[in-house]
């Protein structure tokens, strides 16, 4: 078979194999991921552990374009851009342009004309960031802050960063991801990132309605029995379960879900004693995680948020840094 016209498998890397957009962990390599994580470490002050302000993106304009609601991701991207000294535009597109019928491409082209260097975008359609990366002007970078159920790569890398800070040898770990895998862009990006970092034991846990059969082909093992899957886990990553999925043909009820897949202290005790408890947030206490577990000593949920700032700074500075290198050589 010849390659279909219009196929561009990995627009996030430039001709030299360096990051120019940040679309997905699928298609990156171990070297790039480790460089992102190492760069993120450099933003923490060795004195007090706080994230420093640096002038790496002075004179650059970053637009946060969120077609879907978000608090945490959008705020941490904004803080990250500010710490990099970029000018930041926040656009709540969900309520304006597209509701008047303007296409995604027109919206972005108009913003591009305002000399934006980078778009941080969240969109409800899978592939939206990939699509835009192929349409924007060559000096503009796209950072995917979540597209449909496809990818949420910065979340995956901040999770990897958090794990690595506690348990540096990721390759030797057993990591469980629990819940609505079917609709989760976070889970997909995590599996790719953890695989690239050498992790061999990734367990995806949930009922079959939320755990597509072919997800195992990404390099993970499927489990329906949460108790059994917990055995020997070093890290338990809980996914947010959207309440609107309850009482549909996907899940019978909230109480049944919590009984089968809710993370309680009894279940935490089935994993390794020093297992990390993670959640990309926002948590639904009593739906997928018990309050005492979310606030318990093994939980690193709030640490994840802070680490998100440094990892997003690393991604943004590397994309635009590579653009500058290209321009200088070119």
């Amino acid at each position: 078979m010849q390659t279909p016209f219009g196929t561009d498998l990995n627009p996030q890397l430039n001709a030299s194999g360096e990051l120019q957009h940040f679309l997905d962990t699928d298609g990156l390599n171990r070297d790039i991921i480790e460089r992102i994580l190492d760069t993120a470490e450099t933003f923490f002050s060795p004195v007090d552990g706080k994230i420093k302000k640096v002038p790496l993106l002075r004179g650059k304009t970053v637009a946060n374009v969120f077609f879907e609601a978000s608090t945490r991701t959008r705020t941490t991207f904004e803080v990250a851009a500010n710490r990099l000294s970029a000018d930041v535009l926040n656009l709540d597109i969900g309520n304006s342009a597209t509701s008047k019928g303007e296409s995604l491409l027109d919206t972005i082209r108009n913003l591009q004309a305002m000399q934006v260097d980078m778009f941080v975008m969240r969109h409800a359609e899978s592939g939206a960031a990939h699509f835009l990366a192929q349409q924007v002007e060559p000096h503009v970078s796209i950072v995917n802050a979540g597209d449909g159920r496809h990818a949420h790569p910065s979340q995956a890398l901040l999770d990897a960063f958090t794990i690595r800070r506690h348990k540096p040898d990721i390759a030797s770990l057993s990591i469980g991801i629990v819940g609505d895998i079917l609709h989760s862009r976070v889970a997909r990006s995590q599996v790719h990132a953890l695989r690239l970092l050498g992790c061999r034991d990734i367990r995806l846990i949930g009922p079959q309605t939320l755990l597509p059969k072919s997800i195992g082909e990404l390099g993970a093992t499927r489990y329906h029995d949460f108790d059994r899957a917990l055995e020997g886990l070093d890290v338990v990553i809980m996914l947010r379960l959207q309440r609107e999925r309850m009482g549909t043909s996907l899940l019978p009820s909230q109480s049944e879900y919590f009984r089968e897949y809710g993370l309680t202290q009894r279940r935490v005790d089935l994993a390794k004693p020093d297992a990390l408890i993670m959640h990309p947030g926002p948590t639904n206490r009593g739906v997928e995680i018990a309050a005492d577990v979310a606030d318990g000593p093994q939980s690193v949920i709030l640490e994840q948020v802070n680490n998100g700032i440094a990892v997003r700074m690393a991604v943004m500075s590397m994309c635009l840094g590579n653009r500058q290198k290209e321009a200088a050589h070119g």
Binding site: S126, G127, G148, H150, R188, P212, S214
Partner: peptide
């Protein structure tokens, strides 16, 4: 198609 590719790309199958 509901299969490997749609699962990887996060597309409704």
């Amino acid at each position: 198609h509901a299969g490997s590719m749609s699962t990887r790309l996060g597309l409704n199958g």
